[in-house]
Structures are given as structure tokens and as C-alpha cells.
């Protein structure tokens, strides 16, 4: 069996020539006196699966919230799919957001709606609303991708933690995003379910041809999903490389993540 890190490393090398999907230059973000992102510089290419590691409170979640537009950056340049977000007006930003999927740590499911309602909601708000037949097809496709076909009429409160994550992922996938952002996708799950979610991330990556950024503390998830890992410290990129490279890093602090 080929280990994932070897496969992913090869894939990463092949992608270096690919188009740049996300580019951050000297990005800074603060909340009051607390400056979370100090100087973030990174480039992510199409098809890559990048895992961002770091201690709690180092700005990992803020980083992906800046990418999706939930937080505005204070300084620097953020270019997504060739568009500088600081130059985009609200409607253009909304259109760009539709190309970015975001899996929230909590799932952020609409409690008042059924599983089907959660999936219909983003579809019904498309500028070009799909027909009922198209919607049914898309919903079935998304549910089968995440293995929730039998739960269509259940409410989120009836689902387990793993199923809620899957539903959150299905709701994101239904808009066929080009970029997928995962905010701690395996947090709060048992090791078996965590592994299932990690495999699901890889499956989505392959089937939907997405570029992924995964925030996680789960090293096993990082090992399975990453073809590049970026370690963040004090709001800046401290180390970068494949799983194997960082595992054998000369920097003891970086190695400590993998022990």
C-alpha cells in the first residue's frame, strides 16, 4: 500500500506549475490590541491539500475566515482565484464566496430545517435557481457523497457528531466550490469517525477537483490529507513542508507537533 504522504508529495510536485488559487502577502489582522495575524505569506496552487497546524490561538481559524471573507484583513494583499478581495464590492465578494466552501467546526447547521432543507437552502438562493428535478438530483448526489442518503428527512438535532460534520460538508459541496476550507473537521470525534472524515476530505478533493485548506490539531488527519503542511507561530508561517519533511525537521518545536 502506498503511504498517503508519498502520494501527496508527488502530487504536490506536479502542482507547483499549476495556477495559483490563493495568494497572501504580508497579511495582518488584529482584534483590538490583540494582533492575531502578523505577517502571513503563502501561495496555494490548484488541487493542493494544505494543512495548517499551530497551537491554539495562533490565528489558524482567523486565517481561513479572512480567506472566505468572514473577517476583513487589516493590511497586506489577499488574492483569491485571481481577484484581489480588497478591490471587490459586496456583490462581487458574494459571488466569489460561492466558489469557496467552508466547513465550520460546529457544522453551523440550520437547526430549524431538516437535512434536506439545509441542502436546499443554498440552492434556492442561487441567482439562477435550479429546477426541482435538478435540486433533487444535486441533493441526492451530495448526500450519497457523504453517506447520508438515509437521513434526508431527519433534523440536525437527531444526527450524531460525525453525521453533522458530513451534513455540513454536503451543504458546502452542493454549490460545487473550487476551494474547500475545513475548520478543525475532526475535533470532538472519535478516532474511527475522524479517520472516516479524513478519508471523506480526500474523496471530496478527488471527486470535486477542489483545492483544500484544512485547519486541524489532529496529526492523523494531517498525515492522511496533507500534501503540504504549514505551521503557524505567533501569527506568521514558521515552517512549511510535507508531512515527512516536518516529521524529520531539525526544529524541535516543529517536531513536537508530530510526537
Amino acid at each position: 500500500m502506498v503511504t498517503p504522504e508519498i502520494t501527496n508529495q508527488n502530487k504536490s510536485d506536479a502542482l507547483k506549475e499549476g495556477s495559483v488559487v490563493i495568494e497572501m502577502k504580508h497579511v495582518r489582522k488584529s482584534f483590538g490590541k490583540n494582533y492575531v495575524l502578523r505577517d502571513i505569506n503563502l501561495v496555494i496552487h490548484k488541487g493542493e491539500s494544505v494543512v495548517i497546524l499551530g497551537k491554539s490561538g495562533t490565528g489558524k481559524s482567523v486565517l481561513i475566515k479572512c480567506i472566505v471573507g468572514l473577517n476583513d484583513i487589516d493590511d497586506g494583499t489577499l488574492i483569491i482565484l485571481g481577484q484581489d478581495i480588497s478591490e471587490l464590492k459586496r456583490d462581487a465578494r458574494n459571488e466569489l464566496r460561492k466558489k469557496i466552501g467552508f466547513l465550520f467546526q460546529s457544522g453551523a447547521l440550520y437547526d430549524s430545517m431538516t437535512v434536506r432543507g439545509n441542502l436546499e437552502f443554498p440552492l434556492k438562493r442561487q441567482a439562477k435557481r435550479p429546477s426541482q428535478t435538478e435540486m433533487d438530483h444535486l441533493i441526492q448526489e451530495a448526500l450519497s457523497q457523504v453517506g447520508l442518503s438515509a437521513a434526508e428527512n431527519q433534523t440536525p438535532s437527531e444526527l450524531s457528531g460525525g453525521m453533522r460534520k458530513r451534513l455540513g460538508l454536503a451543504r458546502t459541496l452542493i454549490l460545487k466550490p473550487e476551494i474547500m476550507l475545513y475548520d478543525e473537521p475532526t475535533t470532538g470525534l472519535d478516532p474511527i469517525t475522524s479517520k472516516e472524515i479524513s478519508k471523506l476530505i480526500l474523496k471530496v478533493q478527488k471527486n470535486y477537483d477542489t483545492t483544500s485548506i484544512i485547519i486541524t490539531h489532529d496529526i492523523e488527519c494531517a498525515r492522511l490529507t496533507a500534501n503540504r503542511i504549514i505551521v503557524i507561530q505567533h501569527g506568521a508561517c514558521a515552517a512549511e513542508g510535507s508531512y515527512t519533511e516536518l516529521l524529520n525537521s531539525k526544529n524541535a518545536w516543529v517536531r513536537s507537533f508530530f510526537e
Partner: peptide, 11 residues
Amino acid sequence: TQQIDAMKVSG
């Protein structure tokens, strides 16, 4: 529960 944020990110 970040449901409002979820609406924002879905456009």
C-alpha cells in the same frame, strides 16, 4: 452557532 456566518459563506 455560526448559522449566520454559514449563510454569509454560502453567498
